[in-house]
Amino acid sequence: MTDNYQLCRLGDDAQESQKWDDFVDSIDTGTFFHLTGWKRVIESVYGHSCHYLYATLNNNIVGVLPLVEQKSLLFGHALISTPFCVYGGVASNSDDATLFLENEAIALAHKLGVDYLEMRYPFTRNNPELTEKCAHSSFGWELADTPEAILAGIKKKQRAVVRHSLKNELSFRIEEDTKTAYDVYSESVRNLGTPVFPKKYFASLKQEFGDNCDVLTVDKNQKAVSSVLSFYYKNQVLPFYGGGLFDARALKSNDFMYYQLMCHAQENKKCTYFDFGRSKDDSGAFKYKRTWGMEPVALHYQFHLVKAEALPNLSPNNPKYQFFIKMWQKLPVWLSRRIGPFLSKYLG
């Protein structure tokens, strides 16, 4: 069956990209992270080589597979679908087309001589050439129809935290202010010991995805304390890059932020689902998301080893990164913003 498919590679042609995106829009397995805008952002901001493959049958697209090549002396050489994203792998409604593109990806991985191929599926696969590793889970829930119903649906203890935040004289604004989002996020991840992305990355995401991307910022006394950059796609809201400053914990401003985002997305964007993204299993973020009442759903990431002898482990919990994390937490924020992008381009 797979012999009938024709393999194609996405170039820079706008009409070809539009056909790809139209296909992603039309199928259930197509996610925001399969859209061609990610190719343009990753190429322009990070300079990585993108290998976007798609299969056609009778001149119609039947499957797409975004792949990005990352090559680093420190973190290795990988072919990933897709870095900086939660979901990836083949988007198709055909098992045969999916298998065809997976096998083409494996062949490409060997041709490029990478250490490993990684495909970030949210569901299981049955390709014997792939090895599954479930180390992350996603979280989310259906959005109720009113702010009161959304609040009532939050787990009791976390609902009390949100109610507390509503009494802290916080305000919020929704705009295109990626600079504030970056400033807050960069300080937040510095505190966690994680290198931050380049500032132009946030601006590029907004420029590329337009109305499907915005920023919600929480202020206290006209000063930003929490901020989140979110995506909107297929009636879902995806808060993707969020964080808070030192005062955020006491003010409960992150809790306030996510609640207000739920209300905004439901009322103004007609969203019916809140996708809280992925977290490393049993991490602090994992436990925090469960406090809202959301149950974890395992992400079935698939790997094919080429030169590597073992599955990769770039987790912050990896002992070999602990010294680096502790040192990074001590850096001045301005310095972390200066040197972080040289490392984060390989950590998506």
Results as ranks from 00 to 15, higher is better:
D3W: 02
R9P: 00
R9Q: 12
R9L: 08
K19E: 11
D21A: 00
F23D: 00
D25Q: 11
T29F: 02
G30D: 04
I42G: 00
Y46N: 10
H51G: 11
Y54D: 09
I61L: 07
G63S: 13
L67N: 04
V68R: 01
V68Y: 11
L74M: 04
F75G: 03
H77G: 07
L79Q: 01
S81T: 02
Y87V: 06
A91S: 06
D95Q: 11
L99Q: 06
F100I: 07
E102C: 07
N103D: 08
I106G: 04
A107H: 05
L117W: 09
Y121H: 05
R125D: 12
N126D: 13
N126E: 12
E129C: 15
T131R: 09
G140M: 03
A149H: 12
A149V: 08
A152D: 10
I154R: 08
K155W: 08
K156S: 12
K167W: 00
S171Y: 02
F172L: 08
R173P: 01
R173Q: 09
T178F: 03
K179P: 00
A181W: 04
Y182H: 06
S186P: 00
S186A: 15
E187L: 02
S188W: 06
R190G: 02
R190P: 10
V196R: 00
K200F: 01
K200M: 03
Y201A: 01
A203D: 03
F209A: 05
N212I: 04
T217H: 01
D219I: 09
S226P: 05
V228Q: 09
L229A: 05
N235M: 09
N235G: 06
V237C: 13
P239Y: 10
G244N: 12
L245Q: 07
F256E: 05
Q260N: 15
L261C: 06
M262I: 01
N268G: 05
C271K: 08
Y273C: 11
F274K: 08
G277F: 01
K280D: 12
D281E: 10
D281P: 03
A285T: 14
P296S: 13
V297M: 09
Y301D: 07
Y301L: 04
A310H: 15
S315K: 10
P316S: 11
N317Q: 14
N318T: 09
K320P: 03
F324C: 03
K326W: 03
M327W: 08
M327P: 04
W328R: 11
Q329H: 10
W334S: 12
S336F: 01
R337G: 02
I339D: 10
F342M: 13
Y346E: 07
